[in-house]
């Protein structure tokens, strides 16, 4: 399978981060995304960085693998940094590049924004690296549960998500198979003029759609045969449970947030 697809894919493990209730993880990440924007001093950034680094290490996922997954992001981070350098004109002029003045404010601003960006990406990718997509679905269903009262189709949404998750690997394998079959019939997906390459997608997409429809039809039939009649009266095997380690994680996170307010200037 293509290496690009595994970026951010769940890596099985037994670490504390893996074992957290997915809802705790999602709530913490949601709050983290907000508090990152509150940091405004060296100390506050330092605190968030330490928190992120320690969390990353405690997942016990090889750092080289995480780094590889972040490769495309590096480019963006570097780009953001350079952009800040160029547009910010505050503070003292540090030096000049080809008669273009670089201000100290630009360096500080660039560093802060790039770091923020980096922390955000890293923390959110930790969610998908340590949580199965199914757990994420369950967490969403559970967190959205209150919306049921306003007739929001929470069960259907969750079922749709879990079936999509179930079929993503299948459809990816299928895409690969069909593209190989068509490549064997002389289709060139990788070189040649853009026009030809766009045309080359048709022999891939048509069979893929045909097969996806066929699968959907058969799946619907299998679900019906197994007694599926919608969400009413249904029970659930999966249960999410908040345990000691969730309270611990949430407490640690709140300490970080308090620390953040103390170190802000």
């Amino acid at each position: 399978m293509n290496n690009a697809f595994i970026v951010g894919q769940y890596v099985p493990g037994e670490s504390m981060i893996h074992r957290l209730d997915p809802r705790s993880k999602m709530v913490i990440i949601f709050l983290f995304v907000i508090v990152v924007f509150l940091a405004n001093s060296v100390w506050s950034y330092g605190l968030l960085t330490i928190f992120t680094v320690l969390t990353t290490l405690s997942t016990r996922i090889p750092l080289s693998y995480i780094a590889k997954g972040l490769t495309p992001v590096w480019l963006l981070i570097v780009f953001t940094f350079i952009l800040q350098l160029v547009v910010t004109k505050e503070g003292a002029v540090l030096f000049q590049i080809i008669s273009y003045p670089i201000y100290s404010g630009g360096v500080a601003q660039g560093a802060a924004i790039s770091l923020r960006f980096f922390l955000l990406i890293l923390v959110t990718s930790l969610l998908t690296l340590t949580t199965t997509p199914l757990e994420i679905t369950d967490a969403i269903e559970s967190l959205l549960h209150p919306l049921k009262r306003i007739k929001f189709p929470v069960h259907e949404l969750a079922l749709m998500m879990s079936i999509s998750l179930r079929f993503i690997p299948t459809l990816m394998q299928e895409t690969e198979k069909i593209s190989k079959a068509q490549a064997s019939r002389g289709v060139d997906f990788k070189s040649g003029p853009i026009k030809n390459r766009i045309q080359a997608i048709i022999p891939l997409l048509v069979p893929l759609f045909v097969s996806a429809f066929k699968r959907a039809e058969e799946l619907a039939m299998a679900m019906e045969a197994r007694g599926y009649q919608g969400g009413d009266g249904r029970t659930k095997l999966r249960e999410l449970r908040i345990e000691g380690i969730d309270y611990l994680a949430i407490s640690v996170f709140f300490l970080i947030v308090i620390g953040l307010f103390l170190t802000r200037v």
Partner: peptide
């Protein structure tokens, strides 16, 4: 095309869940 669950136990559970 008949494997509904994301894991083995979820799939076996599907018919049971439907019947409450």
């Amino acid at each position: 095309n008949q494997f509904v669950g994301t894991t083995v136990q979820d799939d076996v559970a599907f018919g049971l869940e439907n019947r409450g």
